[in-house]
Write a protein that binds this DNA or RNA. Sequence first.
DNA 1: CGAATTTGACCCGCGC
DNA 2: GCGCGGGTCAAATTCG
Length: 193
Amino acid sequence: MDGHESTPPPLLPPPPLLSPLNVPFLFPSSSLNPPLESRQNILPDIDWISLLSGLGQENQVMIGSGSSTMMSENGGGYQIQQDDKGHKRKGSSRMKKTSRPRFAFQTRSEDDILDDGYRWRKYGQKSVKNSIYPRSYYRCTHHTCDVKKQIQRLSKDTSMLVTTYEGIHNHPCEKLMETLAPLLKQMQFLSRF
DNA sequence: CGAATTTGACCCGCGC
DNA sequence: GCGCGGGTCAAATTCG
């Protein structure tokens, strides 16, 4: 029996903001904190809080680069969608029927696995219709966390990767913490003066 | 040797 | 009811 019926409280913003590492057009540099200017250029102001709090309804968010609204061929944009059309399996022990927040976004990446700071375990792979590439299914390895994600490459534009997150992490991002730890220590040290 | 991945089987919803 | 498509399970295998 898989007795985690209660859905964990959302603690973190959705992954797209935390997952710039291998996505050059999101944040061109390896820096975790790019200058505000360039960030706004690519990523318009998003009210993630209200976005997350409105999970009861259907939501769709599209983000384009600059003034263009749609994701385009020039490699300058990406697209975010959210929906909560959770699939249910009644009477089955396999899945909960609770609908969970889902975020889908496209990234332009050569790498099949984009490093978003969380640790994932692959639990399935399926070939999908109308696509020559298979879809991969991942689950967050954190014991208390039930977040899933699917990754699929577009057959139309093979450099595009579609990532769909389902659920919200109820724990901090390990790699991010790892990175920030020495920084925080130094800040603590400096703040004593 | 434990953890992660692979992969075929299985399950379920949906359209016809 | 049946077949198809998509999602998950779990045993076998690989990896670190």
